[in-house]
Design a protein around this nucleic acid. Structure first.
Length: 822
RNA sequence: GCCGAAGUGGCGGAAUUGGUAGACGCGCUGGACUCAAAAUCCAGUGGCCUUCGGGUCGUGUGGGUUCGAUUCCCACCUUCGGCACCA
């Protein structure tokens, strides 16, 4: 089609429905955005290259405006970089395993695979209709054996390294989805997906040892200079690092030692009782055969019946065990209680209670009339710890009632008490984390099978790498029954032990889908490799991702898991970098009718009806024109009408200019065009803002219309087309062609002439005592003295100077003169 | 409770290094074109006052620094987000 005469004969109307498919077809035919991997050693290996990536979509069948914003942002960056001379890797794929497809199969029948693949077909078509510049030759989907075979291999690698393990523990159980949930998937005690109240169940499950990487996840944030501070803060909060001490208490008249974690070793002399979590393994042993046994058992049973929400909302309660602890610092006997305000999951599941300096312990002490002993005091003033706990971390606090440590400042006492404990072997400095290991097994069907076999003789046996993938069998009944639906596939479950050849059974749980999406960005670099998950040399060439773009809702889950994977794989020598995403941009959410878009609220806005009415270019332009991309924004139909109108204006303006000759004269329009290039380039490149460049191009187009006689009109029009191309590529290509050119998408990004950024004349603002009194035309060449003279001679300024003395004169070159009078 | 972000016309927003507050767009008002409408184009559009020259107030609130503050500092209010029985 580029062989045709460049310019059509008539000035037809802007018709996105005609031009958009035309250019999309050409891009596909020319493989315009495909980027083959370079070969090491060849010249192309050393070309400037960059990796622009947006978060992997779940293929729900319908694209919504959140997707549109995400992928259009990436598109603008990718186009901008490509035209800036970079080779741009920009792939796309699908996070295709997961509950929605499985639930749809339960509700409407059919196979999750069929439903998913149908949805992928639909969403792919809609993405292509948006005209995004994607290398479709690298498309992947996490549900295909070609992909999950490697997910399984990576699981085995982590298993070999001891980073994947099985343990029995109390878990979050969603009664509706009939599966366990990772800690991160429980929000306010409810299932993140369906909102059901989460129950506790003791189950044997698979985990990834992400806690081994807690320190690295914190420390290596220094490699993430370009990440939004709020995301880093959220991850820091989530990891929840606390420094303190582990202190060992001994049960009186026994040899049973119980460690506790405390951030306040300086309060050790104030410990007046001791509390075990109801789930603590020692509870039964301590009360066995004692008069308190029955009451304690009853309390533990009652506590286990309570959800986390109930535990938190009720008043603190507990029960005395009849046993005592010995405080290691002073030998004091303190009673041992069991109470559910102490969590088994954190620290050691046991605490030393210091009611004088901890609100929770204080409330408990008041409830059961336990003694409250003050051991920390402010340097000045009095506090009454009987009334209220004195919780302070002021370095000015000093210890009291603490034997030889009394009068020590609190920070110093922390250190010296830890040292003392270390010397006598009863404690040590210790760091504790809120972060728990990542629970990865799910009792659901539509996920990646865990490549593990259970053998009575050999125990847990990994499936050998050569036997991967462990294919997900097709079954007919997906209804959750509290165990994995895969358990019903008897023939599949029965297997020979890879180790001894005897009878064995397959693992029937599947992997959390966050595992699938924790490495997809690596696979994109080498998506068709059939021998290995990737070739390290190729991956190291592209990675880390230079610009990652996605929703802030993934600030913790996905982003932390992906970071963990990358570090673990780097430690195994499989990668040459430790952080997957060098720069991160988190976009704000699209709201509609005053609320977040959500299926349950029925306010999901889809781009399709708008594409039909206004075209993809208008949709793309509008989603970025709405406001700063990192902020939430409300979708409004009136907005897209405006952007669509602008495209019509651009169309007419450019076609009119296309009849005019190119001129290199320095005219006001030529200057404006150069200024616009500078503005748009700086905004996208340095400031990473996407709404103001659109406004700048709008201004330029308005200027062209106001000055049709300016010889710079054609240059300005070509500039406008070129600058809007990353946002609205179809209309830009069409106009570029009608301007007599070809293939704007590979055209170098326009450059500007510094000398043309300044106008010859400017409007001098004249202030008197900081108030604007006049605006006068002035030359940029004028000296400061000339400007002051100009200002003083203004008739509008004169009345304000009358009878006054000018005390000070401030001149801002090319801007203003301020006369200070008094 | 702790941590973080943000408050600017009727609306979305702009103002990048302390220097003309309100760019750009929506909406609204008036006009042109039309038999009429749509589309398009032109002009106006922060509040109050006005003798139509202009004056005055104005960026959540109250202070401060400065010749000059949406921008910097202090205190507070509101909204949103994250964390929260984590010892």
């Amino acid at each position: 089609m580029t062989d045709e005469p460049a310019k059509t004969t008539i000035e037809d109307a802007y018709d996105p429905q005609a031009i958009e498919p035309k250019w999309q077809a050409l891009w596909a035919k020319e493989r315009a955005f495909a980027v083959p991997n370079p070969k090491p050693g060849r010249p192309e290996w050393n070309e400037r290259s960059t990796y622009v990536l947006e978060m992997l979509p779940y293929p729900s069948g319908e694209l919504h405006m959140g997707h549109v914003k995400n992928y259009t942002l990436g598109d603008v960056v990718a186009h901008f970089r490509r035209r800036g001379g970079w080779k741009v890797l920009r792939p796309m794929g699908y996070d295709a395993f997961g509950l929605p497809a499985e639930n749809a199969a339960i509700k409407e029948g059919g196979q999750p695979r069929e439903i998913t693949e149908r949805n992928i077909g639909r969403i792919r078509e809609q993405m292509q209709r948006m005209g995004w510049a994607i290398d479709w030759e690298r498309e992947i989907s996490t549900h295909t054996p070609e992909y999950y075979r490697w997910t399984q291999l990576l699981f085995l690698k982590l298993f070999e390294r001891g980073l994947a393990y099985r343990k029995e523990s109390l878990q979050n159980w969603c009664p509706k989805d009939q599966t366990v949930l990772a800690n991160e998937q429980v929000v306010d005690g409810r299932c993140e997906r369906c909102g059901s109240e989460v129950e506790k169940r003791s189950l044997e499950q698979w985990f990834f040892r992400i806690t081994d990487y807690a320190e690295a996840l914190l420390d290596e944030m220094s490699l993430l200079e370009q990440w939004p501070e709020r995301v880093l803060t959220m991850q820091r909060n989530w990891i929840g690092r606390s420094e303190g001490a582990e202190v060992v208490f001994r049960v009186e008249n026994t040899e049973i030692d119980v460690p506790v974690f405390t951030t306040r070793p300086d309060t050790l002399f104030g410990a007046t009782f001791f509390v075990l979590a109801p789930e603590h393994p020692l509870v039964a042993e301590l009360v066995a055969g004692r008069p308190e046994e029955e009451a304690v058992r009853a309390y533990v049973k009652q506590a286990q019946g309570r959800s986390n929400i109930e535990r938190e909302e009720k008043a603190k309660d507990g029960v005395f065990t009849g046993r005592n602890m010995v405080n290691p610092v002073n030998g004091a006997r303190i009673p041992i209680w069991v109470a559910d305000y102490v969590l088994m999951e954190y620290g050691t599941g046991a605490i030393m209670a210091v009611p004088a300096h901890d609100e929770r312990d204080h409330a408990f002490a008041r409830q059961y009339e336990l003694p409250i002993v003050q051991v920390i005091a402010p340097r000045e003033g009095e506090v009454d710890v009987q009334v209220e706990a004195y919780v302070s971390s002021s370095p000015d606090d000093v210890l009291v009632n603490s034997s030889e440590f009394s009068q020590s400042p609190s920070p110093e006492a922390k250190r010296s008490i830890i040292n003392w404990l270390g010397a006598v072997g009863l404690g040590d400095a210790k760091v504790s984390y809120r972060l728990r290991d990542w629970l990865i097994s799910r009792q659901r069907y539509w996920g990646c099978p865990i490549p593990i076999v259970y053998c009575d003789k050999c125990g847990i046996v990994p499936v050998p790498g050569s036997e991967l993938p462990v294919l997900l069998p097709e079954i007919s009944d997906f209804l959750p029954k509290g165990r994995s639906p895969l358990a019903t596939a008897e023939e599949w479950v029965q297997v020979k032990c890879p180790s001894c050849g005897g009878e064995a059974r397959r693992e029937t749980d599947t992997l959390d889908t966050f595992v699938d999406s924790s490495w997809y960005f690596i696979r994109y670099c080498d998506p068709h490799n059939a021998e290995a998950p990737w070739d390290r040399q190729i991956v190291d060439h592209w990675m880390p991702v230079d610009q990652y773009i996605g929703g802030v809702e993934h600030a913790i889950l996905h982003l932390m898991y992906a970071r963990f994977f990358t570090k673990a794989l780097a430690d195994m020598g499989m990668l040459g970098f430790r952080e997957p995403f060098a720069r991160l941009f988190t976009q704000g959410m699209i709201h509609y009718r005053g609320a977040k878009m959500s299926k349950s609220k029925g306010n999901v806005v889809m781009p399709n009806p708008y594409i039909e009415r206004f075209g993809a270019d208008a949709v793309r332009l509008n989603i970025l024109f709405m406001g700063p991309a990192d902020q939430d924004a409300e979708w409004q139909d009136s907005g897209i009408e405006g952007t669509s109108r602008f495209l019509g204006r651009l169309w007419r303006t450019v076609l009119e200019a296309a009849d005019k000759p190119m001129s290199s004269k320095v005219t006001p329009l030529a200057r404006k065009a150069h200024q616009t290039i500078a503005k748009v380039t700086d905004d996208i490149d340095r400031r990473f803002v996407f709404n103001t460049p659109i406004a700048a191009v709008m201004e330029l187009v308005n200027e062209i219309n106001r000055a049709p006689q300016d010889p710079g009109a054609r240059f300005a029009a070509e500039t406008a087309v070129s600058l809007i191309q990353p946002y609205a590529p179809h209309i830009a290509e069409e106009l570029w062609q009608r301007l007599g050119h070809e293939r704007l998408w590979i055209e170098p990004w326009p450059t500007y002439d510094e000398r043309l950024l300044e106008q010859e004349a400017f409007e001098l603002v004249v202030q008197v005592n900081g108030k604007v009194r006049d605006r006068l035309p002035a030359s940029v060449a004028a000296s400061e003295e000339q400007l002051v003279e100009l200002a003083r001679s203004s008739p509008r300024v004169a009345p304000y100077l009358e009878g006054k003395q000018i005390r000070k004169t401030i001149v801002v070159p090319r801007k203003l003169v301020n006369l200070v009078v008094g």
